[in-house]
Amino acid sequence: MLLLIPGPVQTRPETRAALAQDIAPWDNDFRPTYASIRDRVRAIAGGQEGVHATLPLQGCGHFIMEAAIRTFIPAGGKLLIPQNGAYADRAVRLATECGRQVVALPGPDTRPVTGEEIDAALAADPAITHVAVVHHETGSGMVNDPEVIGPVVRARGRRLILDSVSAFGALPVDLSAHPEIDVVLFTSGKCLEGLPGIGFAVARIDSVTAAAGNAGSWSFDLLDVYEHAVRAGWGSFRFTPPVQALAAFGVALDLYAAEGGQPARLARYRENARILYDGVRGLGLTPYLEPRHQGPVIVTVHQPADPRFALQPFVDALKARGVLISNFYNTKVPTFRIGCVGAITPEQMRGAVAAIGGALDDLGVSRREAA
């Protein structure tokens, strides 16, 4: 089965094999593996030793996002969230339920937020201390570029939380060039092609240590994660981790480096996305985004106007042909989304395009323009 979702992604056999062991996470033989993972992740983020620290947390991307909001923004504090996609909507809810004041900056989910829009919102409200941005919107496939947003936030003297959950490892991030970024967030089961179960924050140490008393939660306090590492060592996890997933993640990082790191991973994903985008257009389907706004992680496609199309039967027909995609959508109009990430080659993506065409034929879908 070819798994074409934006996470958990298809993984290499070597990565999955690393799960098949029993490990004590506190054992001295495992500590160097975990400490090395923290160092390697910081390097991928462009972080600097002594300036940035890797602070993992058990769980999914929503968990690490909530931890960042709680840690860096005090209760009652105010943050700006460009609301141009489903995961930005979720960030608004997370922040609101954490007791933070949200200033939403509404926008369509078909284009990135602009620097001018961010600048105007910050100028209008000096009480905003942070901007929280979703780097890659997993519902639509659109990218909010920190190279555009970061300089504006820095010039206004504010701070940036970068939710790069579905982009990190493919889209570049260089923390050393962005002192305005308090933290970049991601998870193990996306573009680094590990197994799910671990959220990562690569954070400025000075911002973390200034956050005492903010979190209002022991479990979701990144300062406590940092203090535990300082006290117990960087090979020590604060609470019981998904240790087999950590071991597999170490293997995934080995494979990432062997492939050529971020530039090579991005190049492969971009080629996958190009083949898919051009392929669905060739089948008469309508991509959700214009080519200039299309990112490399997923391609979202309008559902066809043909009344014989329905999402779940299409997913089932595609699965019967060996390709599994998501059976839901996160856009304001009916779509389906296909992941371009994971241990997938361009040749496999060409096969997926053929399978999409075959599944539509199986359903008798001839009117393929947008509904």
Rank of each mutant, 00 (worst) to 15 (best):
Ala17Cys: 08
His178Met: 15
Phe309Ser: 11
Leu363Tyr: 03
Gly351Glu: 13
Glu347Met: 05
Arg270His: 07
Asp221Gln: 06
Phe239Lys: 14
Thr129Asp: 15
Glu369Ala: 12
Arg16Lys: 08
Thr114Ile: 09
Cys340Thr: 00
Arg70Gly: 08
Leu318Ile: 00
Arg93Lys: 13
Arg292Lys: 15
Thr15Met: 09
Gly59Asp: 05
Gly139Phe: 00
Val113Leu: 05
Arg156Met: 11
Val41Cys: 08
Gly233Trp: 11
Arg93Met: 12
Leu19Asn: 04
Gly199His: 04
Thr96Cys: 01
Ala53Gln: 13
Pro106Ile: 01
Pro304Glu: 08
Arg281Val: 07
Ser207Tyr: 08
Arg156Pro: 02
Gln48Trp: 05
Ile298Lys: 07
Pro13Ala: 03
Asn272Asp: 04
Ile205Val: 15
Pro25Gln: 03
Cys340Phe: 01
Gly260Ser: 04
Gly261Trp: 06
Ala35Ile: 04
Pro74Phe: 02
Phe63Trp: 05
Glu14Gln: 13
Arg265Asp: 06
Val51Met: 11
Gly157His: 11
Arg31Cys: 10
Met142His: 08
Ser217Trp: 07
Leu19Gly: 04
Ser217Ile: 05
Leu289Tyr: 04
Ala317Pro: 03
Leu171Phe: 04
Thr96Glu: 10
Gly322Met: 02
Val134Cys: 13
Gly351Ala: 10
His228Trp: 14
Asp125Phe: 01
Val134Ala: 01
Ala267Ser: 11
Gly59Tyr: 02
Val173Met: 03
Leu185Ala: 12
Gln101Cys: 07
Phe30Arg: 03
Ile205Lys: 06
Val143Thr: 12
Ala167Lys: 03
Leu160Asn: 01
Ala317Asn: 05
Pro346Phe: 10
Ser36Thr: 13
Gly7Tyr: 01
Gln101Tyr: 02
Ala20Lys: 12
Gln262Leu: 13
Ser219Asn: 12
Val208Lys: 11
Arg281Lys: 14
Arg31Glu: 11
Ala264Ile: 10
Asn330Ala: 10
Ser236Val: 11
